[in-house]
Design a protein around this nucleic acid. Structure first.
Lengths: 341, 341
DNA sequence: ATTAGCACTCTACCTTTGAGAGTGCTAAAA
DNA sequence: TTTTAGCACTCTCAAAGGTAGAGTGCTAAT
């Protein structure tokens, strides 16, 4: 389909373009890479590559620029060959993040900053998807008259807390009883499973237990269902330094997408059941607003189950090698750190 | 110092400029406002105003543009005269925010979005300054072996929670005892005060009580001291639509400032002991990075003590009337809603 | 199959030009 | 004394032309 030499030329063009933006011409390729061919030959090859859809010309008689398909080809090759990560920066990441261990959210915030400062693109991390985490303990605490604090502990630390007002004033003793009942039933299950069983239990109306408990269950179900995860985004100013973002309209687009965090959360949620780092290049992006950018994502896990996502957003002219490596190793260390608590 | 007629002209120029950017000339002023004077006279007045520092010319033979001093004069006048807020939009704000009452942080997040969507500038809210809030209750819960969850309830809802690892395994009973002791001593005081007394107590070494308690106190002091408040910023994409931000460098500046949230937190903290809405115009801003923007801030309170700040960032060419009114009423309603819990 | 040579194309940047808007000044009018 | 009309002058902005540079595609020679 595509011979080895053409492939080499394609990769050369892509690497040139990643190093500095602007169409890359045949002469430049011959100078930077010693193919032992003249510009004219390279030109012919590039012309072929354009026909195949890997390159394109911004305008007649300019150099070539990679298409999304070209990048895809390049990245696929990359991922295949990548056995050895560059282990050097691993340790740095590890050490710096270690400091932030205190609380899971500030930890993930720090991780997103880390992603962006390492890559010079936009770094994104999400807090664990509540539904995927396992319940460690529920506590009900009387907060003041008619107000109860519901605390959901998961294996990663406190995940959710909420103060709810209840109609009848319940004593702390009763609350303890309810909590005990719920704990006995649900500890060790994922929140998603718990929600499902609660729904089942309520609808089946086989509430042998007392009214308070059924009320509490309804309450907890509600808490579970409004579980939008937190998301940490950083590096916007970082990305503005790139020549790719000299156009004000692109900035606007990007900002609008990112500011509506729910969009990103949804996107990441969809991804978060897949393995290893994934790359979405330009038009491959499921989100309309992101079709001009590239997105490298991976997940961190609790045990073997992915519970949260991290990633990098940058221009399609992204240093994919670096980005993939950064995302991958960061995900790896987040997983480690969560389990090491 | 400055006669009435000149003042009128100054305000006319400012209003023109706020309505649409670009230097405003003498002809425009005579057309939009009926002073009964010819352009030539207006020109003379404007020339005087320039000498006094209220206006300036971007270049010879262009119209005039207000200086920061000019805006200041205008805003001062405004604040003096402002007795009647436009009560219409109050109700809207109130109703929409009411929905978000559930949890204080998502509530403040919503409030910041509200600020930005109403003003079309950048909306900022901070969560209550932990130090200023009063302690409602402390709870210590055994989370797993050697791990204790410390919960700080304040009158606004749960403010802080942290899981800490302790050397010796403590029983829930002991934890309850410690919590009880601390509660008895500190409930009703502000966290700042509590921190101070803890420090005193520890340093004085008059720890008649047992070792666990002194250890717990040290712990809690640490938790208090790392109290950076959350901050919610929104409306970045909003602001890019303004003609004032057509220059990419200004965007960069702004983003850099805003992305480093600690800067803003610090700024707001300094302000948060003053009354009513305050306006910082361009160079009046204490922060170097903000000297090209204007900042309208106010505080929300617990009782009569300000505990958090909200504000709007926009261009110096800001609609100050609207901005002040929005900030003021939003602050008012946040105060109300917090106390109405 | 590859390459050298050449005409052609397109962009980016610079300069020029003219229109438009607005000022400052002066002298006349109120 | 204050206001106004008239006019020359200045500056910006946008469009128009012109040139250099980079790169291509094609053809004919190697």
């Amino acid at each position: 389909m595509i011979d080895e030499r053409s492939k080499q030329v394609l990769f050369a063009v892509i690497q040139c373009y990643i190093n500095e933006p602007g169409p890359v011409g045949s002469r430049v390729v011959t100078k930077k890479y010693s193919f032992g061919l003249s510009p004219a030959t390279i030109r012919n090859i590039m012309s072929d590559l354009e026909e195949m859809g890997f390159l394109r010309q911004p305008h007649t008689s300019a150099g070539r620029v990679p298409t999304d398909i070209g990048y895809r080809f390049y990245v696929d090759k990359l991922v295949c060959e990548r056995q050895q990560n560059n282990k050097e920066n691993l340790f740095d990441i590890y050490k710096k993040l270690e400091m932030q261990k205190k609380d899971i959210n500030s930890f993930l915030d720090a991780a997103s900053r880390m992603l962006s400062s390492l890559s010079h693109y936009i770094g994104i991390t999400t807090s664990p998807n509540a539904g995927m985490t396992t319940l460690n303990k529920i506590d009900l605490i009387k907060y003041r008259e008619n107000h109860v604090a519901v605390l959901l502990f998961t294996d990663e630390g406190i995940m959710k807390n909420r103060i709810v007002s209840v109609d009848s004033d319940i004593s702390q003793k009763d609350l303890n009883r309810i909590a005990e009942y719920i704990n006995g039933k649900f500890v060790g299950h994922t929140l998603d499973d718990i929600r499902k069983s609660i729904v089942r239990e309520i609808t089946k109306e086989k509430v042998v237990c007392d009214k308070l408990i059924s009320e509490a269950l309804t309450l907890i179900r509600d808490i579970f269902s409004t579980s939008h995860s937190d998301i940490f985004i950083s590096g916007l100013s970082e990305v503005l330094e790139l020549p790719d973002f000299c156009d004000i309209n692109r900035i606007k687009e990007l900002l609008k997408t990112i500011e509506d965090k729910h969009i990103i959360v949804k996107l990441l949620d969809e991804i978060s059941d897949s393995e290893g780092p994934r790359v979405f290049i330009g038009s491959e992006n499921p989100l309309e607003e992101m079709k001009k950018f590239s997105f490298v994502v991976s997940t961190y896990k609790e045990g073997s189950r992915p519970i949260g996502a991290i990633g990098i957003i940058g221009p399609t002219r992204m240093n994919y090698i670096k980005a993939i490596s950064i995302v991958d190793t960061t995900a790896y260390y987040i997983t480690n750190m969560l389990s090491g608590r």
